[in-house]
């Protein structure tokens, strides 16, 4: 069995290396809907993929991944909202881990909204 004692070693190793997690005002907020509708449609792996990628690529200063309840657009779940200071909110719908990582790369890092995955695009194609 793995023991929680290993956390002591992690703590010792990280001593002094932990930066202050200031919520700076320029941070991009990425919100994943995690109510019944989101979870049933596959939001858990989307949330994990985004948060893992942000941690692995050391982006937590720039991007903050959080969860929320039902956004009210259940038929479009899993939904990922991107809230960037000074810009209009972008709502991505029917996300998968792969699409979410594409959004991370092109939009959050590249600054280009991935229009084909947005709510607007999904509504227009009806």
């Amino acid at each position: 069995m793995k023991s929680l004692e290993e956390l002591r070693a992690i703590r010792a190793k990280m001593q002094g290396k932990v930066g202050v997690r200031a919520e700076n005002e320029n941070q991009i907020r990425v919100v994943v809907g995690m109510a019944t509708c989101g979870i049933a449609s596959g939001a858990r792996p989307v949330l994990t993929a985004l948060s893992d990628a942000v941690q692995e690529q050391n982006l937590s200063e720039k991007i903050c991944v959080t969860q929320t309840g039902c956004i009210g657009l259940c038929q479009y779940e899993p939904i990922v909202e991107v809230l960037e200071p000074g810009k209009e909110k972008v709502t991505y719908v029917k996300m998968t881990p792969e699409k979410a990582l594409e959004v991370l790369r092109l939009h959050l890092l590249g600054g280009q909204v991935v229009t084909k995955y947005t709510l607007g695009a999904a509504q227009n194609s009806l």
């Binding site: 793995k2 929680l4 290993e6 002591r8 932990v18 893992d52 941690q55």
Partner: peptide
């Protein structure tokens, strides 16, 4: 609560090493 005791208050569970440890702990055990 036990995890916090060993890890201290400053280090977030979201830190990659801690997050990975939590997952491995759950999966292995």
């Amino acid at each position: 609560r036990e995890m916090r005791e060993m890890l201290g208050d400053e280090i977030s569970f979201m830190e990659p090493e801690v997050s990975l440890f939590i997952w491995e702990y759950l999966d292995n055990n």
